[in-house]
Design a binder for these strands. Structure first.
Ligand SMILES: [Mn+2]
Ligand SMILES: [Mn+2]
Ligand SMILES: [Zn+2]
Ligand SMILES: [Zn+2]
Lengths: 136, 136
DNA sequence: AATCTTCTTTAGAATAATTATAAACAACGA
DNA sequence: TCGTTGTTTATAATTATTCTAAAGAAGATT
């Protein structure tokens, strides 16, 4: 499988040695067709389910944060008791289904360009994110 | 002072009896010119500073959540270790100065109307919020 | 005002997400 | 293979938030 080499590359780029545990984490994170929105706990449970091997929670946290720092994962701002991450690291917006606690990607076309008409001296814009909360 | 009557009204509308502690909380929350962005801890410390009286942390949490439920406070979605609230409960967007950890209001005109061109069957839009992160 | 009922305050305990620790272990390069 | 450096893991620590229950205050009733 070619993907394992990609995982190793991602890990090396993040200054992480490619260990069995980290490859398993990559398997769950990146071996999928569509974007993946998750909490650390989601990921932790999926690793055991999908690979049959357990990885410690500390390793999951550490690896996710290394990927986040490197830019392989995005953190989505939501007020929840858990932090949400996203494998889609491009600039994009979200629906958040409050009841289901699920994130859904919005394409840029779904929202349109956002022009910020205000600026703060000495500061520049790092990101612009739209969060659309959904209810029943 | 007329404001005390307003505080009592807000408290009653929130199904809270107007106690000394809650009036002090209102004093810090609502007796100001411009919008106030805060964490529970900010508020907790300001109460002691500005009124000279201490209110227990539990009471601050309870009162803030009652106001939030009633719609007198807004919760701002940010990934921080603490939850941010806002006395400006109108629909509006924010700058977030990542370094200073400070929120700044954006007027609707500063962002322009946002038209969401996608919908999810059975769900309706509850809110649309833009968060613009600022860096140096 | 005295009394009764219901709500409130508070200190402290409980909970839960995240981070830190340090000892056993694994990857890497020589 | 050996030595070095990075990694895993169980477990403890930290921290924001919520819960608990006893003592106190507010509101209603007389
Ligand atoms: Mn996404
Ligand atoms: Mn605001
Ligand atoms: Zn991170
Ligand atoms: Zn709330």
């Amino acid at each position: 499988m070619t993907s394992k080499q990609e995982f190793i590359e991602k890990l090396r780029n993040s200054n992480l040695r490619p260990t069995k545990q980290r490859i398993n984490i990559c398997e769950v994170l990146f071996n999928r067709d569509k974007t993946f929105h998750f909490t650390i706990n989601d990921l932790f449970n999926l690793i055991k389910d999908k690979t049959g091997e357990k990885v410690s929670l500390a390793t999951v946290y550490n690896t996710v944060h290394a990927f986040h720092k490197k830019g392989y994962l995005k953190e989505i701002p939501i007020n929840s008791n858990q932090t949400y991450f996203d494998t889609n690291v491009t600039d994009h917006h979200h629906f958040f289904d409050v009841k289901e606690e699920k994130l859904i990607d919005l394409k840029s076309e779904d929202v349109g360009p956002i022009e910020i008409q205000k600026s703060i001296p000495g500061k520049k814009i790092k990101s612009v994110e739209v969060l659309v909360k959904l209810e029943d």
